[in-house]
């Protein structure tokens, strides 16, 4: 896939996911090397009201989405790839009040499965909040996913 089609495809993919829109996620960077999404800080995703630290669930949503959409960086055509599994290791809590970025890359693509890995970070990608690995199933072009595939390809979400 050409570099120029990756970013618009990632943006359209993200735009159809309602929960991600609610959280205000945006595409920061998308190319053949991987994907970066941005999750803005908001009071509604706080998990510890005493400190203002973001809930792990919001970071999981960010990273599930980042790993899932990072498949567009390696696939020649859009495919629905449901998550098989996801593991998150928390290095330290996110600093309150600041956006969180999710980076993910596909490090192995097979006919049936795509292996992804990534990090959640704030100021420094080398000092991440969390490390993530996720495995995704390739469904190919199945009928059930046609409407979403169409929406992502044509931008008619």
């Amino acid at each position: 896939m050409s570099e120029t089609t990756i970013r618009p495809r990632a943006e359209r993919f993200l735009s159809v996911l309602k929960h991600c829109q609610n959280l205000g996620m945006t595409v920061e960077q998308a190319d053949s090397q991987g994907l970066i999404l941005r999750l803005p800080y908001s009071d509604s995703i706080v998990g510890d009201p005493e400190t203002g630290v973001v809930h792990g669930g919001a970071i999981t949503s960010l990273m599930d989405t980042t790993c899932g959409i990072s498949t567009v960086c390696v696939l020649p055509e859009f495919e629905i790839c449901p998550t098989l599994d996801l593991r998150i290791d928390y290095m330290h809590p996110a600093a309150p009040g600041k956006a969180i970025y999710g980076f993910a890359e596909c490090y192995r693509v097979t006919p049936n499965v795509i292996f992804t890995r990534g990090v959640a970070y704030q100021d420094d990608r080398d000092n991440p909040i969390a490390h993530v690995v996720g495995t995704f199933m390739r469904m190919g072009k199945v009928t059930q996913s046609e409407a979403l595939t169409k929406a992502v390809n044509e931008g008619r979400a």
Partner: peptide, 10 residues
């Protein structure tokens, strides 16, 4: 969303 299911379970 899979992330919501995970957040709910966490």
């Amino acid at each position: 969303h899979g992330g919501v299911i995970a957040g709910f379970m966490e």
